[in-house]
Design a protein around this nucleic acid. Sequence first.
DNA 1: ACGTGCTCCTGTGTGC
DNA 2: TGCACACAGGAGCACG
Length: 277
Amino acid sequence: MPELPDVETFRRYLESRALGKVVTRAEVSAPAMVRNGSPRRLRSRLGGARFRATHRHGKYLFLECDRGGWLLLHFGMTGYPRMGRRVASRDPARFRVRFDDGTTLTFHDVRKLGTIGWVEDVQSFIRARRLGPDALDMPWETFRARLGRAKGTVKTALMNQRAVAGIGNVYADEILFRAGLHPAAKAPLPDSTWRRLHRALRTVLARAIAAGADPSRVPRTFLLPNRRTHGRCPRCGRPLSTLRLGGRTAYYCERDQPPRRREAHGGVSQTACGTRP
DNA sequence: ACGTGCTCCTGTGTGC
DNA sequence: TGCACACAGGAGCACG
């Protein structure tokens, strides 16, 4: 589920492997995934061009062409890029860029929830989509300005791409876990709590990126590898609880993330931290 | 203006 | 054991 750390990992991967080579051909196998522009436009703009830079904003990845304009990649739920001579993947290719040195950039996405596109200007795209500032290395002042007046649950606020870009379901849970805050906690929150969330956000994103967003490589204190049925809290070892919030499943530890106020949130699952202290 | 729920899509894992 | 179906969830949208 590509969120900011995953997409940043993709960016670094392509930055080191896809720049400077001449594109001989671009092939679109899933035309429905092209949302910005058209397959035809992608082919014509990419043919003969070279990628000269990468950029990421939130969960969006951009590759700049030396003739101007940017290839836009969004990975949805199951998307990922691969560079290689042979296309060795069990997942079907949805989009492919062939280079003059025989290598290929392939966009895999089983569920086709990702998107491919062409943008003339990255900042215009961000403005048009009304995306908030990127969550990575976000200063406290920006964080407070964007979220300080949020309403509703904190988790929803963190996941709102128009407030802060890059956080999805998995890392919202991770941040809340690190901050020791219940996912159904309701804004407004005291500044001290937003501070805690901000620090957690910075630490979580930095460490996830350092681990290449690989669940098997993130710190042991992370919730990420434990978010599954019968998963346990890495801190206290109790079974994790789940909660349905805005159609998404929140994983959390009832002991380490107590609700700060008594609030009427429904549907705490029975897999809850069962054993007592 | 905000929250909720549906839609897209398909493989996996749960539960009867 | 086998099959059906809920679930996974990013984003955009309609609706209340």
